[in-house]
């Protein structure tokens, strides 16, 4: 994100960033509660699998996201509102692209988008 910021990127208003130590620490309940609190979308960003400091953090996060998406579907919330991408710290441009694309889905509503990031 810092790399993207150097490029002149700034987050949309209404976006909150929630830093976590490792995306593998994210729990289903945590993501669900973000939606319960009214988020239009949640974008989970984690390290590339091979970069994981704890071997399986990103893999674990992937499972958690899958599980959360299933619950969201059942709760009548479109699963695409939960975005999940693994990118490296250096991929500032990539992040910009992902973020823009994710936010675009909800641009008409113009509401808050929470972002969860592992950096």
């Amino acid at each position: 994100m810092e790399n993207a910021a150097k490029d002149g990127f700034c987050l949309n208003p209404g976006t909150s960033v929630i830093p976590v130590k490792c995306s593998g620490l994210i729990k289903v309940s945590f993501l669900l509660r973000l939606f319960a609190k009214g988020s239009d979308g949640v974008l989970v960003l984690g390290c590339l699998e091979q970069d994981c400091r704890y071997f399986n953090g990103s893999i674990r996060c992937g499972k958690i996201v899958d599980e959360t998406r299933k619950i969201l579907e059942l709760a009548g919330i479109d699963a695409t509102r939960l975005g999940f991408h693994l990118i490296s710290e250096s991929q500032g441009r990539e992040f910009k692209k992902i973020f823009r694309r994710f936010v675009k889905q909800f641009s008409k509503r113009g509401r808050r988008v929470a972002t969860s990031s592992s950096r």
Binding site: K27, V28, L32, R33, A36, K37, G38, I71, A75
Partner: peptide, 14 residues
């Protein structure tokens, strides 16, 4: 891991 609680919170959301 509180998932069940969170599902409940979700159900209570507007």
């Amino acid at each position: 891991a509180e998932t069940i609680e969170a599902v409940l919170d979700l159900q209570l959301s507007p």
